[in-house]
Amino acid sequence: MPKMKTHSGAAKRFRKTGTGKIKRGQAKMRHILTSKDTKTKRKLGASAFVSDADYHKVSRMIPYA
């Protein structure tokens, strides 16, 4: 059986933690930041985890992470 290919777009966006969870960045932090509240920008700067509903789909895209 051939090796599985890593989805290169997913590899740039997701990282696997030591416990097996998948970390992701938050959206809406690229532009138009002047109209966003300081509290919102601070919260969006932190990383988050992939939801349980999307975990299987994302983990298939990064098989060797």
Results as ranks from 00 to 15, higher is better:
Met4Asn: 05
Ser51Gly: 11
Gln26Met: 12
Met61Lys: 07
Thr6His: 01
Phe49Trp: 12
Val58Gly: 01
Ile22Gly: 00
Ile32Gln: 11
Ser59Thr: 08
His56Cys: 00
Ala11Ile: 00
Ser8Cys: 00
Val58Thr: 00
His7Thr: 00
Gly45Pro: 07
Asp54Val: 00
Ala11Cys: 02
Arg15Ala: 15
Arg30Val: 15
Asp54Arg: 02
Arg30Ile: 15
Ala10Pro: 03
Ala46Thr: 08
Thr19Gln: 14
Leu44Phe: 03
Gly25Asn: 12
His7Ile: 07
Ala27Cys: 03
Met4His: 03
Ala53Trp: 01
Leu33Asp: 04
Phe49Ser: 05
Arg15Pro: 02
Ala27Glu: 13
Gly45Glu: 11
Gly25Val: 03
Gln26Leu: 02
Asp54Cys: 00
Ala65Lys: 01
Lys3Ile: 06
His31Glu: 09
Met1Ala: 12
Leu44Ser: 05
Ser51Asp: 06
Lys12Glu: 14
Lys5Ile: 01
Thr6Pro: 01
Thr19Asp: 15
Phe49Leu: 15
Asp54Gln: 04
Phe49Met: 10
Arg15Ile: 12
Met1Glu: 02
Tyr55Leu: 13
Tyr64Val: 01
Leu33Gly: 10
Gln26Gly: 08
His7Ser: 10
Tyr55Ala: 08
Leu44His: 09
Ser35Asp: 13
Ser51Pro: 05
His31Val: 12
Thr19Arg: 11
Gly18His: 06
His31Phe: 15
Phe49Val: 14
Ala65Ile: 00
Lys43Tyr: 06
Gln26Thr: 05
Lys39Arg: 04
Ile62Tyr: 02
His7Val: 05
Gly20Gln: 09
Ser59Gln: 03
Thr17Cys: 13
Lys21Glu: 14
Ile62Ser: 00
Lys36Asn: 07
Lys57Pro: 00
Ala27Asn: 14
Asp54Ile: 01
Ala27Thr: 14
Ser59Leu: 02
Pro63Gln: 07
Gly25Ser: 04
Ala53Phe: 08
Thr6Gly: 00
Lys16Gln: 11
Gly9Leu: 12
Ile32Glu: 15
Lys23Asn: 09
Asp52Gly: 07
Leu44Glu: 07
Pro2Gly: 02
Lys57Trp: 02
Pro63Ile: 11
Met29Gly: 14
Gln26Phe: 04
Pro63Ser: 06
His56Thr: 13
Gly18Thr: 12
Arg42Asp: 07
Ser47Asn: 03
Val50Cys: 08
Ala11Gln: 05
Thr40Pro: 00
Tyr55Asp: 07
Gly25Leu: 01
Ala53His: 08
Lys28Met: 15
Tyr64Pro: 00
Thr6Tyr: 01
Ser35Met: 11
Lys21Gly: 12
Leu33Asn: 13
Arg60Met: 14
Ala46Ile: 03
Lys3His: 02
Thr38Cys: 01
Leu33Glu: 09
Gly25Glu: 03
Thr17Trp: 09
Leu33Lys: 04
His31Met: 10
Pro2Gln: 02
Arg42Gln: 11
Lys43Gly: 10
Ala11Tyr: 10
Arg42Glu: 12
Gln26Ser: 06
His56Pro: 01
Arg15Gly: 06
Lys23Asp: 06
Ser47Gly: 04
Thr34Tyr: 08
Lys43Asn: 11
